[in-house]
Write a protein that binds this DNA or RNA. Sequence first.
DNA 1: GAACTATATTCCTTAAGGAGTATATAGAAT
DNA 2: ATTCTATATACTCCTTAAGGAATATAGTTC
Lengths: 117, 117
Amino acid sequence: MELVQIYECLCDPTRLRLLHVLSQGPLCVCHFQKILGEPQVKISKHLAYLRARGLVEVERAGNWMVYALPARPARELKANLACLQDCAQEDPIFKRDLARLKKLAPKFAETSPCGCH
Amino acid sequence: MELVQIYECLCDPTRLRLLHVLSQGPLCVCHFQKILGEPQVKISKHLAYLRARGLVEVERAGNWMVYALPARPARELKANLACLQDCAQEDPIFKRDLARLKKLAPKFAETSPCGCH
DNA sequence: GAACTATATTCCTTAAGGAGTATATAGAAT
DNA sequence: ATTCTATATACTCCTTAAGGAATATAGTTC
């Protein structure tokens, strides 16, 4: 995996938020929408961008597309994701995303049988 | 310092090489030219890009402009520069740059009184 | 002050990417 | 088969940035 490609993926705030939330576990698009508060097309396109460069993986579950971090991430990716987690700790937006995830996770489990959270 | 801005700086191979070499100590533009083997305008413009975003600092020494990593880097920058050093270890281009730096450092000291290496 | 050196800036062309609107697809439910 | 839900893609507009050629600037040397 090319290091520059990783950084290209990281240089957009929406993608940073997606990856940051994904570190907590797989999620589908509609749940990302709820957590980030961004329109579907935006989420979907950024996930496609990440997927095309190998930063996320996808699995279909009925109507839902469940995105996840790679099962076996390359060394450089692993290092940078860890670095992101570290840097994101104090940022209010990242923190808010995590808070929303924790708050919504139970509802997700009830209403959508897609197996993510 | 904005995290995304750091990643924007890191998503170009030339800038990665500049920052990687800079971690060994301050350097002036003409020495970067020799080490990277890239034209002056390219080096200069990428350094200006990094400078505008606070990833490097500059000091004039006669005709020479001596670039260096920030004396007191922000937490996120520090983390990402460390991560870059880590990721760069096995890459042939990064390794070649370092090798050239070590080889040329003595000549730099002789021929250019700019105080970098 | 004229020539020289090191570096920066401007101009041009080209390409990539981000946002939004609208539309298409694929599977599920009825 | 039709409708519904979740997601993806195409299209358009706009901004940013990369590379190269040429030129400008600032300091030094003679």
